[in-house]
Design a binder for these strands. Structure first.
Lengths: 269, 269
DNA sequence: TTTATATTGTCTCAATTTGTAACAATAATA
DNA sequence: TATTATTGTTACAAATTGAGACAATATAAA
């Protein structure tokens, strides 16, 4: 939804939308940004439309910046949802009517839409979500306590988390969910939140340090009644938007214990 | 492109297309199906459009069946290409004119298109590609010897192979590129073709057998001047279209040697 | 028929990585 | 000053992988 309501159908590609699953880490759990449209009781992922002359990825980046005020966010396209019946006209009609628009039955926003879905990773603390003109609120919800969402948005969230988990070791997940400097425990909590399981502390630390992607700083005096942890940051070579080739040498994505690691088969002959 | 040329714009969603990277394994290398449009010298991936009431995935499956004659093909959506300038009107105009259509400048096929890209894995030997009415030929090309392709189709192929490589251990790659029964060597060749490297024979065999996804059959007398290899097939539990959950316990996707395997960190406490 | 050859399947053992627990260091609290 | 929780590191056993050796054997060559 753009702010220049009502939108002119000539400005946007028909039948094409995007939705974004904006993921933040609150210190102990993953949260997702959900919009509530006013006077409707309807909850949805923040989404939008593609300008007629706008690159798809640019339109998503623009929409994200409008909603969160943040630029340079880590964004990843993960799936395009294209079922013919995925969006129903009724909820959209309700949203438009709640905003003083009485759409005719052939209004372009009531048509079928294909939605390209993205997930975004951001440092929760840096963001002050502000609802746009269509929305009452723009709120962080823990992933296991989401309200009922319109259309197939619940499926979109599920697939986003699944993809995030699959990509955990290959993409810049921790880097984008945490502040610049963080403790090893915080990094481990990010991994545990995404995987949904506990990890072994000593092995996690050992392998993270061995993977050579972290820089260690002076200790942090956290105020806890115990030894102070070091602070770490990711090495600069791992840039935002860049798929980490170098991490491919240090990470892998499987879950299990009987592992078939293709990497260990590389012949040296 | 459908066979019912000329296509009625009312039958399809405007601005939305799909393209498919159809991958086959010829015994020693990967090949991709490329169409040549007659009287144009233009080469392209087989693609098509989405019916107004058709699910996106169904339209791709329909198009694939029309081109290869095969149903129940393993299909995976991997990216949606949405740059505003990704398709140029000139080549499309040339294709239409070569088929006796003189499109006006506002013809819907000359508009901007977003393309949802899929890769398909098929057993090369089972397929008899047949060109449709628009095309002169429909030919398997080795991935390193592709002709110059229209639009951004070369990028689409590159991204398809990249995705295939990333998914190698998590998806049903070997199962869908090989015949029902195959030798361990053939399976290894599939892996090597996709990864673009050689793998160690003994370790490959050891881990494949340990992974418990194969069934072994009687030996194959292949005609070679050496010991006959066993034949194998994949266990039935691994169904087409199903992401192999069980393989997650046996496979992982990294490449390298200093591996950070999240799976090995799962806490038992 | 016998020998040679290439490939296959398995095994061995060293090298490396991981699982598990122990332990010292230490910042705040009692 | 003693206590407590957490952190960083180490040690050693267990498991996995790297690298090569070797026997088995289906065909070709002699």
């Amino acid at each position: 939804m753009r702010k220049d309501l009502p939108m002119d159908p000539k400005d946007y590609l028909p039948h094409i939308a995007y939705d974004s699953v904006i993921v933040g880490f609150s210190g102990d759990e993953l949260r997702i940004l959900i919009m509530e449209y006013h006077n409707t009781g309807l909850f949805a992922l923040p989404g939008g439309f593609v300008g007629v002359n706008e690159n798809l990825n640019d339109s998503v980046r623009r929409g994200l910046e409008e909603r969160t005020g943040l630029a340079d966010i880590y964004l990843e396209q993960f799936y395009t949802f294209g079922n013919a019946k995925r969006n129903k006209p009724a909820p959209m009609k309700k949203i438009l009517e709640a905003n003083g628009i009485t759409p005719e039955d052939n209004h372009w926003l009531l048509d079928r839409f294909i939605s390209v879905a993205y997930y975004a990773l951001i440092n929760y603390k840096n963001v002050m979500p502000t609802p746009d003109v269509l929305s009452d609120s723009c709120t962080w919800y823990p992933i296991d306590k989401l309200p009922k969402l319109i259309f197939d948005h619940a499926d979109i969230v599920t697939k986003a988390i699944e993809t995030l988990r699959d990509n955990l070791d290959r993409k810049l997940v921790g880097m984008n969910l945490l502040p610049k400097k963080f403790t090893m425990k915080e990094l481990q909590q990010v991994y545990e939140s995404i995987l949904g399981t506990k990890l072994r502390r000593t092995t996690f630390q050992r392998k993270m340090l061995a993977s050579d992607v972290l820089v260690r700083y002076e200790k942090q005096y956290s105020g806890g009644a115990h030894k102070a942890p070091f602070l770490y940051s990711f090495k600069k070579q791992n840039r935002v938007y860049t798929k980490v080739k170098s991490m491919r040498n240090g990470f892998s994505a499987g879950i299990g214990h009987n592992n078939f690691f293709t990497d260990s088969l590389l012949s040296k002959k």
